[in-house]
Each structure stands twice: as C-alpha cells, then as structure tokens.
C-alpha cells in the first residue's frame, strides 16, 4: 500500500476531494446503470403476472 494512514488515503496530499468525488459520482452512475434495468424487468414481470392472474380470475367467474 502506498499510503500509511487512513487520513493520508482521504487527503491524498490535497487531491483527496477531487479523486474521491470523481470515484463517488462514478460509483453512483454505474450502480444506477445496472439497477435501472433490474428494477424495470422485475416490475414488468410483476405487472404481467398480476394482469394474468386478474384475467384468470375473471375467466373463472365467467365459467362458474
């Protein structure tokens, strides 16, 4: 490891603010990039499944 304390890691000789803000924003964007399609797919499956059950429920009422 290049740095000898946590303080040094955070400060990075005065460049800490720049380096860490760049990394934090990047992590947020990358996580969003993966989380967005995941949520969208789960929501779609749930909605389609729900519509399907309602459809089947309605169908049973008719046949009964």
């Amino acid at each position: 490891m290049y740095f000898d304390s946590l303080q040094a890691v955070l400060e990075m000789d005065g460049h800490g603010m720049f380096v860490w803000s760049a990394y934090v924003v990047t992590v947020i964007v990358l996580v969003g990039m993966v989380a967005h399609p995941l949520r969208r797919r789960r929501r779609l499956l749930r909605d389609i499944g729900g519509a399907l059950r309602r459809e089947q429920g309605a169908g049973q009422e008719v046949t009964n």
């Binding site: 490891m1 290049y2 740095f3 890691v9 990075m12 000789d13 005065g14 460049h15 800490g16 720049f18 380096v19 760049a22 990394y23 990047t26």
Partner: peptide
Amino acid sequence: GAVWGLLFTAPDFRQGNSYRIIYIH
C-alpha cells in the same frame, strides 16, 4: 482495479495523486 489504482500505485511524478482519476476516466 479501483482499490489497486487508488491505494497500491505510486502517485504520478508531475500530477501527484489526482492522476488516480485515470483508472475511471
């Protein structure tokens, strides 16, 4: 890759530690 670049490499001799942004930029 991020931990390697952030903590285990030496700083750039001209730019210092700000160069560590290279590993995502």
